[in-house]
């Protein structure tokens, strides 16, 4: 047998029908492993979302309780408070600006949440500011500047004056974003940031209003359910996904080694 170079022997070995057949089998095996890894990840995400959703639903289904029973102003807002159904009496602060928080609806329709300052008028939180999402407005983000006028006092979307009773679900603070509120919009709902705009004491979470008594006339859709922040990915599923990828790589390594041995055999 003539002496062949390492590379050409490798390719000659790799082209053998038996080796190609093995490659096919091992690639299918590797593909299945990679797919199984992805499936494990999907399952991990799905599982943690389902668990968080179930917990929030269970809390929202209960009859509203006084706000005082759930959270007090200037105290930490915990994940267990998210989705709690509460009611509270007080009035919208007429001197405080309303803001629009851009948020597309689940169908991708642009729009924003109307955020207002609500002064609690009863119980332990009397006098404190509760950030309140009055509802959702379908609007093009490009027109948000013009909407600031409608949201200001005297505009058709101004917060109603006088005492009202709100019913809704609590939602947690979002990370403050850089948007300053100077153009009438805010990038997120962060009570820490709102305290600078509206003053304190302020609650650590906010209320998404489902019902106002007496009824509002403004043309706002009810705010959608607060986004459920999902818990961390179950580590176990993540580890399984990694394992499947390792197995996939293993199949490829086995093939490369087989070709190498075969090539060495051909050379000798």
């Amino acid at each position: 047998m003539p002496t062949r170079s390492r590379t050409s022997a490798w390719f000659a070995a790799a082209r053998q029908p038996r080796i190609l057949g093995l490659l096919l089998i091992l690639l299918v095996a590797a593909g299945i492993c990679v797919r199984l890894g992805a499936w494990q990840l999907d399952r991990a995400v799905e599982r943690s979302e389902r668990a968080a959703l179930r917990a929030a639903e269970a809390r929202a289904d209960t009859a509203p309780v006084p706000l005082d029973d759930v959270v007090r102003p200037q105290t930490g807002f915990t994940q267990a408070m998210v989705g709690r159904s509460v009611e509270v009496a007080g009035e919208f602060v007429q001197g405080a600006a309303q803001y629009l928080v851009p948020e597309a609806d689940p169908a991708g329709e642009p729009g924003g949440l109307v955020l207002a300052a609500f002064r609690v008028g009863e119980g332990a939180g009397e006098g404190a500011i509760l950030p309140v999402v009055r509802g959702r407005l379908d609007a093009d983000p490009a027109d948000l500047g013009a909407l600031a006028f409608r949201l200001s006092p005297g505009g058709d979307l101004a917060a109603p004056p006088g005492n009202v009773r709100l019913m809704g679900v609590l939602a947690g603070s979002e990370a403050a974003q850089s948007a300053s509120g100077s153009d009438g919009t805010l990038g997120s709902i962060s009570p820490g940031q709102l305290a600078n705009l509206w003053g304190s004491p302020i609650y650590g979470g906010y209320l998404r209003v489902l019902e106002v008594q007496p009824a509002q006339t403004a043309s706002l859709d009810p705010a959608p359910a607060p986004a459920v922040r999902r818990g961390g990915l179950p580590l176990q599923n993540l580890a399984y996904a990694v394992q499947w990828w390792i197995f996939g790589g293993f199949a490829v390594a086995v093939w490369l080694r087989l070709v190498r041995d075969e090539g060495r055999r051909l050379r000798e």
Binding site: Q236, A239, Y240, Q243, I246, F250, A253, V254, R257
Partner: peptide, 18 residues
């Protein structure tokens, strides 16, 4: 969980020997 990772180590030793 433990079996999964032990199996990974096992595969390494199998590949090495093989």
């Amino acid at each position: 969980f433990a079996h999964g990772w032990i199996y990974v180590v096992y595969l390494v030793t199998v590949f090495d020997l093989w």
